[in-house]
Design a protein around this nucleic acid. Structure first.
Lengths: 209, 209
DNA sequence: GGCGATATGTAAACGACGTTTACACAGGTG
DNA sequence: CACCTGTGTAAACGTCGTTTACATATCGCC
């Protein structure tokens, strides 16, 4: 999808070009549903630049891909997590709604999810290391909710570490999401049934009787 | 790692060459720990053939990679699952041991695990479709164990579908394994602690009081 | 107002990759 | 013996990420 050459950006306007590159890359990623379809040359064509020009804005392809996904994932907090929290009755109901939102976001953006959470460590640019993933991974939102549940005495008394509780929950929804992303044609129970059963079981195990 | 040219196989001996190719590819995969390091040219060099000769034995690179991983995964049943079952006291203890073996196998063969369970559907050769994964995924071993637990009345009475129980368990261990494979440097609890907490919680949720 | 520094961009190439095509040859079968 | 087929090679194709050398426009500064 070649496009008319992009007008050269003025000095200091490079950030606009970088945004256009992100838009183009995201468009290719969403449109094709495959990371392989996003090539530097393809992005350059789509944005009206030369391949080499991409490297004025991103050090390599991995960083570009992660930047695309980070933008996508940033929206999950505002568009998905906050509404889920606001409509929840209590800190346990909130977790159920967050789990639902998380899985839905993952299967609706499968290639973004895979790039973010299912790649080799080596393919992860430094600035998207573990700490940052903790935020985009919704951990920052979930932890206070878990803490609130602890404070209200909702969990089994021996469970005092919010990180461990949040981790168990994340692993459960991440398992479902990554399996759905990697094996969408699997003869598995419907996604909502899976999720319901898993969250029920995990919460049953975590909550006080 | 170029090697002396391989003696031409006699008619009908092509299977030996295919095995040598699998060995070479597995060696590269294990040695490098990265799928990217396994190139058709590299495999050809390691086995003493020309790149084009690889295609006499495997239709494409994906199929070769999956064949390598399938061989690796076949060993999990014999070497890992069976011993775990034999040393178990009861069908619930068996599940704990299987979960342990599963996660350990995954983190010890991370690239094999990723290729098998964390790739795009499109990259999966037809013969390694969902049904086959059900076997290599230990489902064939787990299902009877779950059924036995149901028969013994160990699970909550409303849980009557062994597939759903097995699925919930698999999603939990798959979540842990795939997270460990994709993000080994994550500031997470130690793997055994995670696993213990998750399996405890899930089983607590699944089992009768 | 010119000048140099720098941000932005291009043209061309490099080396590696998966794969295909055309060809070669050996060995079992009729 | 002739032929088919399994096995293998040489050479090429097109694509990819990336680098290098070079161009040019714009801004701050004297």
């Amino acid at each position: 999808m070649k496009v008319a050459p992009r007008a050269r950006a003025k000095r200091g306007e490079g950030e606009r070009t970088a945004e256009a590159i992100l838009d183009a890359a995201d468009g290719l990623l969403v449109g094709s549903g495959s990371e392989d379809a996003v090539s530097i040359r393809g992005v350059a064509d789509a944005v009206g630049l030369t391949p080499a020009a991409i490297y004025r804005h991103f050090p390599d392809k991995e960083t570009l891909l992660f930047a695309v996904c980070a933008r996508h994932f940033d929206s999950i907090t505002e568009d998905v997590a906050v509404p889920a929290l606001e409509s929840a009755d209590d800190p346990i109901d909130a977790l159920r709604r967050l789990a639902d939102a998380y899985v839905r976001f993952g299967v609706e953006n499968p290639e973004h999810y895979r790039i973010m959470f299912m790649r080799r460590q080596d393919h992860r640019p430094d600035q998207y290391a573990a700490e940052r993933v903790l935020e985009t991974g919704l951990f920052g939102v979930v932890l206070p909710v878990v803490q609130q549940g602890i404070d209200e005495g909702r969990y089994r008394p021996e469970l005092t570490d919010p990180l461990m509780i949040a981790w168990v929950l994340w692993m459960a929804v991440h398992g479902i999401t990554s399996a759905a992303v990697a094996m969408p044609n699997f003869p598995a129970p419907p996604l909502d049934v899976q999720l319901r059963a898993t969250v029920d079981a995990v919460l049953h195990g975590l909550l006080a009787d």
